[in-house]
């Protein structure tokens, strides 16, 4: 089996990325029971940039980001790679050393809004905790700041809401409160993990616009994790597509949607029910199921579901490479065939 090292993404501008993951690997368990859920992921975001991360459930989106923050649950560990925050490696730092980074440099809006707030603490108390205990703010100053933040994220009657417990807020309001908490220390990087999955479309659209405008106002880098390509289309500057714990394609958002180069990305785009389709035509789902990391697939992990798969795909892992030099790296053996003409051939409707 050929196991090629992927080349880390080149920084796009001279500024250099705020956050860069280099060849990050994450596994659960040890010895024979060890399961590799993230392989060799390299990503980078710059100041003010929005990076979308897309992929099916279980492909490793959340684990990658939790690893970056050193928040992997018990049993999970980083097996390789670096997490560079403005060039400083965070991997291997002790919890005490990580604490100033969390929330202040990199903030996380975690996946499930409904359970991500402490049910036994008022919203105000949870919001203010780091400000008072680590930010050196007085109680009244923290209160003032919390009210401003809740106002900013559009929670009506902000001052009164500080005294509410999470169960007294609707799902959309809880999501907003979490966003307010995440931006409270003006982080350099905001990671939003499926921030709208639990919400209905009208609330979803409000939250997405809120996150996007906050990013522009505060100049944060945004990493938006989702399985909904529609969500990414509206917000992200660039998109990374993950499959089975590996990045399979990265490109500018417009390029990715207009000319996907990886068969999986293309299949994903074709599988979406589009509101603009005029007739009740058949959907084009991807056949089969996403792979289970406990039973890894040999060669290219997508080969059992790929309509372009060849002999080599079963045996050799393709490298993530940017053959064209157009900032559009892709991990596929038959990429030249796939590139640009793909959507024209398969995607005609």
């Amino acid at each position: 089996m050929i196991l090629a090292q992927s080349s880390p993404l080149r920084p796009i501008s001279a500024n250099g990325p705020v956050l860069e993951l280099k060849n990050l690997g994450v596994a659960y368990g040890r010895g024979a029971a060890s399961v590799q859920v993230v392989h060799d992921v390299s990503l980078a975001v710059e100041r003010g940039e929005a990076l979308g991360i897309v992929g099916e459930s279980g492909c490793g989106k959340s684990q990658t980001m939790l690893a970056a923050l050193g928040l992997l649950p018990r049993g999970g560990r980083i097996t390789s790679g670096q997490v560079l925050l403005e060039g400083q490696d965070l991997v291997g730092r002790s919890p005490r050393q990580m604490r100033p980074v969390r929330g202040r440099e990199i903030a996380l809006i975690s996946q499930d809004a409904l359970t991500s707030l402490n049910p036994a603490m008022t919203i105000g108390k949870q919001m203010a905790e780091p400000m008072i205990h680590y930010g050196g703010m007085s109680r009244s100053a923290a209160r003032q700041r919390c009210t401003e933040l809740l106002d900013l994220v559009g929670i009506p009657g902000a001052a009164a809401r500080l005294a509410s417990y999470p169960h007294e807020l609707s799902g959309g309001m809880r999501q907003r409160a979490l966003i307010a908490m995440a931006i409270s220390a003006n982080p350099k990087v905001l990671i939003a993990d499926e921030p709208t999955t639990a919400l209905d479309v009208t609330t979803q659209s409000q939250i997405l616009r809120l996150i996007d405008s906050l990013r522009k106002e505060l100049g944060m880098a945004l990493i938006l994790i989702t399985h909904d390509l529609g969500v990414v289309a509206g917000v992200a500057d660039r998109v990374a597509v993950l499959y089975a714990g590996r990045v399979v394609e990265t490109a500018e958002t417009e390029t990715l949607f207009a000319a996907p180069r990886h068969p999986y990305t293309k299949a994903l785009l074709d599988s979406i029910a589009r509101i603009e389709d005029d007739v009740a035509e058949r959907l084009n789902p991807i056949p089969g199921l996403p792979p289970d990391p406990r039973n890894p697939v040999s060669g290219c992990a997508f080969h059992p579901r790929c309509e372009y798969s060849r002999e080599i795909c079963r045996n050799a892992l393709p490298i993530l490479e940017d053959g064209t030099g157009a900032q559009h790296p892709v991990r596929c053996h038959v990429d030249p065939f796939v590139s640009s003409s793909l959507r024209a051939v398969g995607g005609a409707r």
Partner: peptide
């Protein structure tokens, strides 16, 4: 409701 549905096409969506 219709205008809130995200469209998976960045040109239109924006």
């Amino acid at each position: 409701l219709l205008s809130a549905v995200p469209v998976p096409d960045p040109k239109i969506e924006r």
